[in-house]
């Protein structure tokens, strides 16, 4: 996991909250890709909401630990796994962050 990476939700997915569950539905894709929907549990949805294209993974983990009772090592491992899962279905994408001049 790259702690300085920034991820944003992919526009090909829409999120719907149904019966207390966060559901990701692929849209604008070929039907072969659209034959599944994806469900996130409560912590998965809370992390998904934070992939806003502005905050780094490290920022997200820090704010998440303020809210949830979790050890840093456990959270980093879980975020790493979730990122891999979301990237594999192209639900998120890494965004380039412009760095200002350092001089």
């Amino acid at each position: 996991m790259n702690p300085t990476a920034v991820y944003a939700k992919h526009p090909d997915y829409v999120q719907r909250d149904v019966a207390g569950e966060c559901i990701l539905v692929p849209v604008r894709r070929s039907l072969t890709d659209a034959n599944s929907i994806y469900v996130l549990n409560e912590t998965g949805a809370a992390l998904w909401q934070r992939f806003d294209g502005a905050h780094t993974v490290e920022n997200i983990c820090t704010s998440f630990m303020d809210e949830y009772d979790v050890a840093p090592s456990q959270l980093h491992q879980d975020v790493d796994t979730l990122l891999a899962d979301l990237l594999s279905i192209q639900a998120i994408q890494e965004v380039a962050v412009a760095h200002g001049p350092t001089g």
Binding site: N35, Y38, T43, G44, Q74, D78, L86
Partner: peptide, 17 residues
């Protein structure tokens, strides 16, 4: 504020509609 209980994040695939 007490912290919320933590469970590992999970992504489930639901094949389909």
């Amino acid at each position: 504020t007490p912290k919320k209980p933590y469970t590992s994040p999970q992504l489930y695939r639901v094949p389909l509609q």
